[in-house]
Design a protein around this nucleic acid. Sequence first.
DNA 1: GTGTTACGATACAGACCTGTATCGCTCAGG
DNA 2: CCTGAGCGATACAGGTCTGTATCGTAACAC
Lengths: 194, 194
Amino acid sequence: MKKEIAPRDKVFQTASRLFYQNGYRAVGVDTIAAESGIGKMTLYRHYPSKDDLIVAYLKDSDEIFWNGFEQITKDAPTAREKLLAFFESLQEYVNTPACYGCPFLNVATEYPETDYPGHQVAIEHKQSVRARFRHLAKEAGAKKPDVLADQLFLLMDGAYMASRMFGAKNPAAHLAEAAQVLIDSALQGRRTFR
Amino acid sequence: MKKEIAPRDKVFQTASRLFYQNGYRAVGVDTIAAESGIGKMTLYRHYPSKDDLIVAYLKDSDEIFWNGFEQITKDAPTAREKLLAFFESLQEYVNTPACYGCPFLNVATEYPETDYPGHQVAIEHKQSVRARFRHLAKEAGAKKPDVLADQLFLLMDGAYMASRMFGAKNPAAHLAEAAQVLIDSALQGRRTFR
DNA sequence: GTGTTACGATACAGACCTGTATCGCTCAGG
DNA sequence: CCTGAGCGATACAGGTCTGTATCGTAACAC
């Protein structure tokens, strides 16, 4: 049983935590190396630049997001209930001390230029989420699935930002209820059979 | 007729623009001085530190926000219509190239420590908006005004972030419609007489 | 005229940033 | 045993950051 973590992974884990909690620009490479107990040159051997490390973190966050999404929605029988399950889970998460907002919103705020590599990854991620919402909205039988998807999208990002602004006790306590209102309003009179 | 702008104001205007567009950490004091055509020492005479300049910008943004809010809502006869008018106006704004998100969300993202002066101002501003929403929700006759206010609050911040993430063409195109659904759902069966 | 004040320009101090170069150690494979 | 790769530690280069110090000048009060 191997208890020890490879230097590359240690660097990555430390960088992920620091980026998420303190921000991308605020965290320096020296801090990451020192905090992870790894030499600076070892860090640069695995990640040729800080931007590479940021992009790696974002791609990992994307994967974690979708794994979580699948896990949370897989037992819901209908598209409507999948969406509800996601927003219930998100509400729970953003009211947790472990939440520091959304890595993708954070990177887009700190690096506003849309051609910055990290911002690119963020846009792709958010577009995927939007597309998934659209798909589920359509499957649920929404009258205007694109509209519903975008409305839910705004709600989601608003909840993430409430967490970063206020911490664990934030206005996102009624997120799921809001999502339900929007969903059921968009489904009015044409909820699918199952 | 005095056409020339005082150095203090020139610095402030330049700093405001750069902070809003490029972010707080990304913009240096030297850049502000150079871009405004003002000497660095003149800048530091009026604003003893960069943080003071940031706080000044945020307080000004707060004032501008509330002036706009008053202007936009003053002709609406009912609380419900005041809220709708605000979200219609916000939707219009966030789909404009002049929008770079929300100065308060941006500062809270870049400086996550809640005791940072700029973050403090941001929290106060957002709490005021929340309180205003609550007041209007109550006046409109919402069953649970606190819940409605927070739901609208999430929608608002989601729209701001959509703008910063995607630029002028963003998912906030249906913001006002979402607000209306939430409002009318919360008012169901008990809309006030006027 | 004379002193004072605000200003622009520039140089500077000290800290921090990203990224590189160097040295010495450890440990695995042959 | 020996060699070489991976690693930690450290020093360094070159740039940028905030904030200060200095100097010359232009406008203005008296």
